[in-house]
């Protein structure tokens, strides 16, 4: 508790101190809260002196600090242990893949085409069956138990590259459907929730339109609202902006950033490094079904360790 208070004090002082330039895009109550949550594990696994040195040194980067704090045990909402997935054709999409993701963490996954990024996301909500290993979502094991599976599907929202809106339903009905059928909400309540969400993603005026009457960016924002309607604890984004015209990418990223700032746990497959830099806590670079390198977005921009990472980044940046 004492350490927590002390850190809090330092953080607030440093943030208020105009003399020191602290280069973090979104330092705010949430970041501080997160930092405090993760003090316990930090103390357990890291030398506190190292921590202080990092923090008090002039070139200290708080982003880096958060990364350290997040690296180990904590309030893990996603625990993936040693999973493998081989497709019928013999393609090894995931090989002994392990990672832990904290509540409220924003993870960006990058990697070349065919490296297993989508497969990893799809395993997290059971869209793809794993061959071995275990996945736990907020304490619930993703196994053959139907109830567990349903619980996980309710807790994990997913946004697809090609939106996958229901073309025969209006925008409102698209969002309403799961609220009515799965959450068993009354009609009025479902409409109220849907309208709030549509307002949040900025297309409240399109409620009665059909998906085909919307632009790509608008469709993707409806898809995000649709997933949010289930009030998920985790949101998965699989190249949510890849199918969009350049001028529409921004509006979708803005919604995603807003979500991240509100503390949503997010796992995003994206090549938008600007997004990664602005809101992500951790970037995972994978290749051929394996994790090659993990670090902050800044780390990837400035000094990636692996040659393969450098090569990949030089291609996409």
């Amino acid at each position: 508790m004492a350490v927590c208070g002390r850190i809090f004090e330092i953080v607030s002082r440093r943030c208020n101190d105009n003399q020191l330039v602290v280069t973090i895009p979104n330092i705010g109550p949430r970041s501080i809260q997160r930092l405090c949550i993760n003090i316990t594990p930090l103390r357990k696994s890291h030398d506190l002196r190292q921590f202080h040195k990092l923090f008090l040194g002039h070139d200290t980067d708080i982003e880096e600090l958060f990364y350290m704090a997040f690296k180990d045990e904590g309030d893990n909402i996603i625990v993936v242990d040693n999973i493998s997935k081989t497709f019928p054709g013999g393609v090894k999409a995931l090989v002994d893949f392990s990672t832990k993701i904290h509540r409220g963490e924003v993870v960006v996954i990058i990697g070349p085409s065919g490296s297993g990024k989508s497969t990893f996301l799809r395993c997290l909500n059971g869209l793809e069956e794993i061959d071995s290993g275990t996945i736990e979502i907020d304490g619930i094991p993703l196994d053959d138990n139907k109830n567990n599976r349903l619980e996980i599907r309710k807790e994990v929202g997913m946004v697809f590259q090609l939106f996958n809106l229901f073309p025969h339903l209006t925008v409102l009905e698209n969002i309403n459907l799961a609220l009515r059928r799965v959450r068993k909400k009354s009609k009025e309540e479902a409409i109220r929730t849907s309208m709030n969400l549509l307002e949040k993603v900025g297309i409240a005026e399109k409620v009665d339109n059909y998906p085909s009457q919307l632009s790509g960016g608008q469709q993707q924002r409806v898809a995000i609202a649709r997933a949010l309607a289930m009030m998920p604890k985790i949101m998965l984004f699989d190249e949510a902006t890849s199918a969009l015209d350049p001028e529409m990418i921004g509006e979708v990223l803005d919604v995603m950033k807003k979500l991240a700032r509100e503390g949503m746990t997010m796992v995003c497959v994206t090549h938008e490094m600007g997004f990664a830099r602005e809101v992500s806590d951790r970037v995972i670079f994978m290749e051929a079904g394996r994790i090659v390198e993990v670090g902050t977005a800044k780390h990837f921009f400035t000094d990636p360790n692996e040659e393969r990472t450098k090569l990949f980044l030089s291609q996409i940046l």
Partner: peptide, 20 residues
């Protein structure tokens, strides 16, 4: 994609057929 969207929203198989 339609099946996958319905699945990820937690819709039952029955509702997926009936509504989607």
């Amino acid at each position: 994609g339609q099946w996958e969207a319905a699945y990820s929203l937690g819709l039952s198989l029955f509702d997926t057929y009936k509504d989607i």
